[in-house]
Design a protein around this nucleic acid. Structure first.
Length: 423
RNA sequence: GGAAGAAUGGCAGAGUGGUCGAAUGCGGCGGUCUUGAAAACCGUUGAGGGUCACACCUCCGGGGGUUCGAAUCCCUCUUCUUCCGCCA
């Protein structure tokens, strides 16, 4: 959520930057400013009413004490009127505040200056590419065929137990999953991130804190009996660690990492793009999260990108990095880099990581602040990224590392898998 | 799941209808003293709104109510503690 004072002071900038998202925000922004003025006017009026009635209450107390009951009762009439008035004003204030907040909820983050304008993923800007796309042997297969051939992932069994999008990993497939999780966590820990194990269900307040609620409710699985939600990403429990927190400046920066399964309803997805591991209802992901001083957050974003790069280099997978255009940028993000691994047998790129700087957009909603050098509470910047999402990395490994003898496990993973080949 | 108790500032912990944003202690910050430090002493130290700055308003787990007036009384929710039951 954007901050009202920021909008007020940077009105034109906000409107022109939001245009990068193809949003014509002038009317919304003007309304924010108008609603906020209304709100402050009502607030002042209410404050004055309350002040008056506080004074009278004290007088009444004093009159009772000195036995002047008649006079006290006379004053009571007056406070009765003030009470009516303040009740009305409170209602007005609440209504106006709700109106303002609901509007603010609808305004996405202001894109960074370097975000390219554009409307679809075709307008994303490729900023880096590395790794050779392998020449596959005759009869090379897409990952879902390989999964079947080597009996390491059973999609039908998942259908039987749960439904589409819940694959069952078996034997070396299951072991490879565990190896990837351990390897990613170790890499992140080496880079200074602290490992966390987080809840896989969150309450409503947490859903609001990271912005899944109220609007994107349909994307999460909802456990109605207890009013809890299955997490769509570790970002939700991970970021909510910092809800209503005031840090010391010296606590920054903070880096945490955690593995969680992720649950997404993905209503409306269908066709070839959901084939195999491309899009699932349950998948595994290792996430990295940072809380940064506002002056350091872009440096930190670059650091996260560099970190994810090293992992992909070690895995020797062909990948590229995209700077997302305004139209493809997530609602809460100011700048996002997507990592995509090349799926050689499908001849397409698969997103495996998304690294973003949210600046104060999440922190404002979360009330995540730190005490700055002036002793004032100031909103911190939050960032996060995947390092990495498992299924598509797995798809990338299966397809790119296939040989006629079998799947050759990348060297860095072998200590974790305990085997060199799936055959 | 049942019973009882509790939730107050960074922490500990008073406060059961007005003079309470809230005693006291610890911690933090500033100072005096000291060659320096410690100790001691003095001062200061919550958040949000509002204002040029004051004033002023709100907040004692969340929500609602009673009252001229609520940290204090009532209802409700949440969380925690102890006891019982069940259990990986």
């Amino acid at each position: 959520m954007l901050q009202v004072p920021y909008i007020r002071e940077n009105k034109d900038l906000v409107i022109s930057r939001l245009a990068k998202r193809n949003i014509h925000a002038a009317e919304m922004i003007n309304n924010v400013i108008a609603f906020d003025e209304d709100r402050r006017r009502i607030q002042t009026e209410l404050d004055n009413t309350l002040a008056e009635s506080n004074v009278l209450s004290k007088e009444i107390g004093n009159l009772y004490k000195s036995g002047q009951v008649q006079e006290a009762n006379a004053l009571k009439e007056k406070t009765g009127q003030l009470k009516e008035l303040s009740k009305q004003l409170t209602e007005d204030l609440n209504a106006k505040t709700t109106e303002l907040t609901e509007l603010l909820y609808k305004i996405p983050n202001v894109p960074n200056e370097i975000v390219p304008a554009g409307s679809t993923d075709a307008d994303n800007e490729e900023v880096f590419r590395e790794g050779d796309i392998p020449k596959l042997h005759e009869g090379a297969l897409p990952h879902w065929e390989l999964a079947k051939k080597y009996d390491i992932i059973d999609f039908e069994l998942g259908n039987k137990i749960t439904g589409a999008g819940f694959p069952v990993y078996k034997g070396k497939g299951a072991r490879l999953q565990r190896a990837l999780i351990a390897y990613f966590l170790d890499k992140n820990t080496e880079a200074g991130y602290t490992e966390f194990q987080l809840p896989h269900l969150v309450n409503e307040a947490s859903g609001f804190g990271t912005g899944q609620l109220p609007d994107k409710e349909g994307q999460m699985y909802h456990v109605t009996a207890d009013n809890l939600y299955l997490i769509p990403t570790a970002e939700v429990p991970g970021t909510n660690i910092f809800r209503d927190v005031v840090l010391n400046e010296g606590d920054l920066p903070i880096g945490i990492t955690g593995y969680t399964p992720c649950f997404r309803r993905e209503a409306g997805s269908y066709g070839a793009h959901v084939r195999g591991l491309n899009r699932l209802h349950q998948f595994d992901k290792v996430e990295i999260l940072r809380v940064e001083h506002p002056s350091k957050s872009y440096e930190a974003l670059d650091g996260m990108v560099a970190h994810v790069k090293t992992i992909l280099q070690e895995l020797k997978l062909p990948y590229r990095i995209l700077r997302l255009c305004g139209g493809d940028l997530g609602f809460t993000s100011a700048l996002t880099y997507d990592f995509e691994v090349f799926s050689t047998a499908q001849d397409r790129w698969l997103e495996i990581s998304s690294v973003s700087n949210f600046e104060t957009f999440q922190a404002n909603r979360l009330k995540l602040r730190f005490k700055n050098s002036e002793g004032k509470n100031e909103l911190a910047h939050t960032l996060n990224g995947s390092s990495l999402a498992l299924p598509r990395v797995l798809a990338g490994i299966l397809e790119n590392c296939q040989t006629e003898k079998g799947i050759e496990i990348p060297e860095v993973l072998q200590p974790y898998t305990g085997f060199k080949i799936i055959d």
